[in-house]
Design a protein around this nucleic acid. Structure first.
Length: 282
DNA sequence: ATGTCTGTAGTATACAGA
């Protein structure tokens, strides 16, 4: 099963890139962020094209900003828009921003998330970001054992995940509270599978449009695929599709792609029989 | 040096968010 996540920075603008990319990479499950359209507009734009390619889709959208989706060829069950007890901005929000959608796809609980940017450390928006990450952790902790959290985390997990750590001191995306909030997701069992597979490599997923940042590979790794233990154990490949950042009218983010081995039959993860069922040794 | 791209309002160009 191939799973991908991509912040498309307006799906309306990215249709000419998204459809050829689906045809080339053939992901079974796709998490999209920053749709910047309503569900109705998404369906009008892409419904027929996605259906023709065998995808079901779940969209949590809004006009103008945010918006997340999951596309799947391997089932799309128990769709949930938003997070339980999701904070809003400005708080309290009677109409939370469209930043999370989850569904069960091929036996895995998949979350497509667009974490708030945070803007400036110490700001209201920064506090909202930390509260939002706490709500995401709670949602994952309360969910099934087999889980994937995919999306734009708007946090660089470590200094190796930004092109120049000195340039980011005091900026959002790298502060200790943000990294602690991300580590909170690891404390409920999630693994950063791209970093696990490329422990010493320069790997970025986002490059500012300005000043030739992509050309100079001055980027950040803020789009992550986080997997719970039974899913992380199935990861066969994990990589950033930099080709999608090149060419005409790209998003400023590249897709992240993970290939999973088939799940073991019958259950997830290794099955340890009860002591009474174990053959006696010698 | 604040460089680009996006959506909105509204019809030319300014603003805000990232």
């Amino acid at each position: 099963m191939r799973v991908a996540t991509w912040n498309v920075n307006s799906v309306r603008q990215r249709v000419p890139r998204l459809l050829p990319w689906l045809d080339e990479r053939r992901p079974d499950v796709v998490c999209l962020q920053e749709l910047k359209v309503t569900r109705e507009a998404f369906t009008d734009l892409l419904g027929a094209e996605l259906t023709a390619r065998g995808y079901e889709f779940a969209v949590h959208g809004q006009a103008q900003w945010n918006g997340v989706a999951i596309l799947s060829t391997v089932g799309l069950d128990d769709v949930q828009a938003g997070l339980p007890d999701e904070p809003g901005f400005p708080a309290p929000a009677d109409d939370p921003e469209a930043r999370a959608v989850s569904a069960s796809c091929g036996g895995v609980r998949v979350h497509s998330v667009y974490v708030p940017n945070g803007r400036t450390p110490g700001s209201d928006h920064y506090r909202y970001k930390l509260a939002w990450l706490a709500a995401l952790k709670a949602a994952v902790a309360a969910g099934p054992e087999a889980a994937l959290v995919c999306g734009d985390m708007n946090v660089a997990p470590a200094d190796a995940d930004v092109f120049d750590p000195a340039a980011f001191v005091g900026q959002t995306h790298v502060t200790a509270p943000e990294r602690a909030a991300l580590a909170g997701l690891e404390s409920v069992g999630l693994r950063d599978v791209v970093r696990d597979h490329w422990p010493d490599s320069r790997v970025f997923t986002y490059w500012d449009y300005r000043a030739g940042m992509f050309h100079q590979d001055r980027g950040m790794r803020i789009d992550l695929i986080l997997a719970s233990a039974p899913v992380a154990a199935r990861v066969r490949a994990a990589w950033v599709d930099r080709k999608a950042r090149k060419g005409t009218a790209p998003s400023d983010h590249a897709p992240v792609i993970v290939d999973l081995d088939e799940a073991p039959d019958g259950d997830i993860g290794p099955v340890v029989p009860p002591p009474s069922a174990r053959p006696a040794k010698n």
